[in-house]
């Protein structure tokens, strides 16, 4: 079942289009930065963006910070909102449920498929932006010294191995953050037969969370907001790496995934499927 869902996901053109668009935005930014050599001043613009001119190896981090607030959530909303509602809209859901497969297994396979999409999305952005960054901005002064490492946010040099490890940690963390939206999308997808409505529901959750974040009045609920911890991965590029915020972020995201997927299960396994 999981294998079937993964193959189906990989065969969809919209999935490849989402990945292509995600990789396109950082590429456009890299081309503009490389041709104009005008990086945002220190402290302004996206994280790491002011430093990429001196070392292209920092560009994957800058690229992830670029796609994180809007583009990544939109693609996850589109794919996860389509998970069940897409089958219902196409009239294939009831035929799917005729097979001797439990509804929980079907839903779990959908979640695995969305998880694979988010992981591959973050991974593709990271790999393409590394290649684009190194082509556009070079390896930086560390390469001349035989190191090839980059300056951490704290100044200490990160070796290529440390950089690879921390980038891998970032990819995993952001994939988990996006999987939260994926689980919410699957929940909405079981509540409606319209994939568009489910995707818009996910975006409504993102916008609401982002709007509540800066409010003092929302202090009591801030730590539970899914977007609150999205930038915690930046702490992985400090030296020594700071794990407090990442740990809290993982706990909150896992909680959201558990509750959203649980609610999707509670609704879908007892739903009268007519389409």
């Amino acid at each position: 079942m999981i294998g079937t869902e993964l193959v189906l996901m990989l065969r969809r053109r919209r999935v490849w289009l989402c990945w292509a668009l995600l990789c396109l935005l950082p590429t456009v930014v890299a081309v503009l930065l490389a041709t104009t050599r005008l990086a945002p001043p220190p402290g302004r613009g996206g994280a790491f963006l002011s430093a990429v001119l001196s070392d292209g190896q920092l560009f994957p981090a800058a690229a992830l910070a670029l796609v994180l607030p809007v583009f990544l959530p939109i693609t996850v909303a589109i794919v996860s909102g389509d998970a069940v509602a897409g089958e219902a809209a196409a009239g294939t859901l009831r035929y799917l449920l005729v097979r001797p497969v439990g509804r929980f297994r079907l839903l779990f396979a959908k979640l695995v498929s969305v998880a694979a999409f988010t992981l591959l999305a973050v991974l593709l952005v990271t790999v393409t932006s590394y290649v684009v960054g190194v082509i556009a901005f070079g390896f930086g002064p560390g390469a001349e010294l035989g190191g090839g490492g980059i300056a951490s946010l704290s100044g200490a040099t990160l070796t290529p191995l440390q950089l690879a490890g921390r980038t891998a940690g970032t990819v995993g963390y952001l994939a988990l953050c996006m999987l939260t939206l994926g689980a919410v999308g699957i929940l909405f997808s079981t509540l409606t037969d319209s994939p568009l409505a489910a995707a818009l529901g996910v975006l409504a959750v993102v916008v609401t969370s982002a709007a509540l974040q800066p409010l003092d009045a929302a202090e009591a609920v801030r730590t539970f907001l899914p977007t609150q911890h999205w930038l915690a991965w930046i702490d992985l590029f400090r030296d020594p790496p700071l794990l407090d915020a990442v740990r809290t972020g993982i706990e909150v995201q896992l909680g959201w995934i558990l509750v959203a997927f649980g609610a999707a299960w509670a609704n879908f396994t007892t739903k009268d499927v007519t389409s």
């Binding site: 539970f224 558990l258 509750v259 509670a266 609704n267």
Partner: peptide, 18 residues
């Protein structure tokens, strides 16, 4: 029953965090 179970789980997670 299932919704109540999920709701109770969500409440337990929030309680553990606060």
């Amino acid at each position: 029953r299932r919704t109540l179970l999920v709701g109770a789980g969500a409440a337990a997670l929030v309680a553990a965090g606060t």
